[in-house]
């Protein structure tokens, strides 16, 4: 499989990373090199094999569904690039 410029543009958009048009050919070429490596997986017979969901056999731990933490807005907001009145501030979302 090979990635064209349109696919590279679409992937960049999905990943929310701005890539200028002039860099798309280089990006597509790098993707193709990596996919060339990945495509070796097609040589493997995976018929009837379960996809791995956990590398250790144990079942994930359960805990009681109760609040165990919270009420620390100052700490939560301490590293925000823009925090106002107890909220994260972002550019206007709704027109």
């Amino acid at each position: 499989m090979s990635i064209d410029l349109e696919t590279a543009r679409k992937v960049a958009k999905l990943a929310r990373i701005r890539v200028e048009d002039e860099h798309l050919p280089e990006l597509a070429q790098e993707f193709n090199a990596i996919l060339g490596l990945i495509d070796h997986l097609n040589e493997v017979d995976v018929e009837g094999v379960e996809p791995m969901t956990s590398v250790t056999p144990q079942r994930l731990k359960r805990r009681v569904d109760v609040v165990t933490d919270g009420d620390q807005p100052a700490k939560v907001l301490a590293n925000a690039p823009d925090a106002r009145e107890g909220f994260f501030a972002v550019p206007k979302v709704v027109e």
């Binding site: 097609n42 493997v44 995976v46 379960e50 791995m52 590398v55």
Partner: peptide, 8 residues
């Protein structure tokens, strides 16, 4: 497919 190969 990669997760299946990982199982193997």
């Amino acid at each position: 497919r990669a997760r299946k190969v990982r199982t193997l």
